[in-house]
Design a binder for these strands. Sequence first.
DNA 1: GGTAAAGAATTACAGGTGTAATCAATTTCG
DNA 2: CGAAATTGATTACACCTGTAATTCTTTACC
Lengths: 123, 123
Amino acid sequence: MDISNSEFEVLQALWRVHPADAQTVVDELNKEKSWHEKTVKTLLGRMVKKGAIEFEKNGRSYIYSPVLEVEAYQVQESQSLIERLFNGRIAPLVTGFAKNKNLSKQDIDELKNLIDNWEQKND
Amino acid sequence: MDISNSEFEVLQALWRVHPADAQTVVDELNKEKSWHEKTVKTLLGRMVKKGAIEFEKNGRSYIYSPVLEVEAYQVQESQSLIERLFNGRIAPLVTGFAKNKNLSKQDIDELKNLIDNWEQKND
DNA sequence: GGTAAAGAATTACAGGTGTAATCAATTTCG
DNA sequence: CGAAATTGATTACACCTGTAATTCTTTACC
């Protein structure tokens, strides 16, 4: 269930173009970096074996899709980080982040919005 | 510069007890899990080689300390996640998190506080 | 229908990881 | 002083990762 760094790059490309055959993924990836076709296919195969992506046959070739959509993956990864490093609490993450990188007005507005919603639902 | 999962467990124990010799780290770890002393020492050695921890000699044994304090490590890891997955923006992380796990009153208060501070400094 | 092209499966190989065991050096206890 | 115990260093070994090359299979063209 653990994706390696290289596998993750392929997964990101697949999110942009799925469903797609291997060659399409290779082409999408090669807009940015230049990985050998064989390398990309190995990584697709490894992710299939891990259950991170799946495929349907279409004649001679496979049509790949990610098992998790990008939003689900984001949630999974952020919760894992927050549990591992922040004892499950999100506010300290935000505070620590804000100490090092200044928040933008857009960030502040989005956070305010979130808080407003929360307050309407709860209390 | 990349810490493996097992190494990270050892590092967390070391944060709690540092500066400490190997045996102290082993004992601290064995409160929770039961790793062989040899395993822990291997991991300490590997982290020294990677520059994640350092030591001073004390007679026959080494006294280990983490190079990064836990706060610095938290910042480093959260920024890395935010860049990889959220294009460098933190608000979407919080929004996604809040969609799946409800925020607590404490979280909301801390976020409000952060926003107040921000508004006093900027605009 | 046989051969080339294309795609997937298998193999390769060095370096990292999990999990120790063995070796070597040093200290300490009898 | 010599044997035992302790501690770090070296070695082990299977599985994962990065990065492909080679082999096998199927399709498509001549």
